[in-house]
């Protein structure tokens, strides 16, 4: 038998877990092999020392106290303490309800958002024709208002048509009332048309 196998059997031998036949083989091997013999002595010594450690016992008083406490627990079993402010099961329901409420709130918010004016505001697109229509409806038959509006338009066109100065650039955005999408030629045409109308 090889030394590795013998070492394994030596461990069994120390525990008294070996057959007579195997024991004889081991003893035979130990007579020839010094390293296995040394190992055998080591583990035997180790076992003896370890068993020496185990001699500690518990006192009779402790034994009695242990049994008394056990008996008391068996006679009057305590109910399991609840963890935290809610028992685990209730906590699950609370979380589920909170989740549902959150989903409902988000749904209602979006529905409200869709149905209110916010949506209209978002979809509103400026229309030059519509704006002009509304202004002309406001002016109606009032010739003074009409003259005032025409002169305002002309002034605005004139301002845009003149070469830009630095100061104009700063206030440029304020003047983009109706003309932001028109070319210079278109503005000149509108100007001439307004003048014709005013003269007539």
């Amino acid at each position: 038998m090889k030394c590795k196998k013998i070492e394994r059997r030596l461990s069994d031998s120390v525990d008294g877990e070996i057959s007579r036949k195997k024991k004889a083989v081991i003893e035979k091997h130990l007579k020839k092999c010094t390293s296995c013999k040394t190992y055998s002595e080591y583990i035997q010594k180790l076992n003896d020392e370890m068993k020496g450690l185990e001699k500690q016992g518990v006192s009779e008083a402790y034994k009695q106290d242990f049994c008394n406490r056990l008996k008391a627990k068996l006679l009057f079993p305590r109910k399991r303490e609840k963890r935290g402010p809610f028992p685990a099961l209730k906590q699950k329901w609370i979380f589920a309800a909170a989740g549902l409420l959150l989903v409902a709130f988000i749904t209602i918010f979006f529905l409200f958002y869709q149905l209110t004016g916010i949506q209209d505001e978002k979809l509103y697109v400026f229309s030059f024709e519509k704006a002009m229509e509304e202004i002309s409806w406001e002016i109606g038959d009032n010739s003074e208002l009409e003259a005032l509006f025409n002169s305002m338009l002309l002034a605005s066109i004139d301002e845009l048509l003149k070469p830009l100065e630095w100061e104009d650039i700063l206030g440029y955005e304020e003047n983009l009332i109706f003309w932001e999408n028109l070319s210079e030629e278109e503005m000149r045409f509108i100007k001439s048309e307004i003048k014709k109308e005013m003269e007539s």
Binding site: E7, S11, D12, V14, Y42, L46
Partner: peptide
Amino acid sequence: SWRMHKARKMLQVKL
């Protein structure tokens, strides 16, 4: 049996 053998080998190294 195997665990006992290995445990003894480990203890032997330590001790």
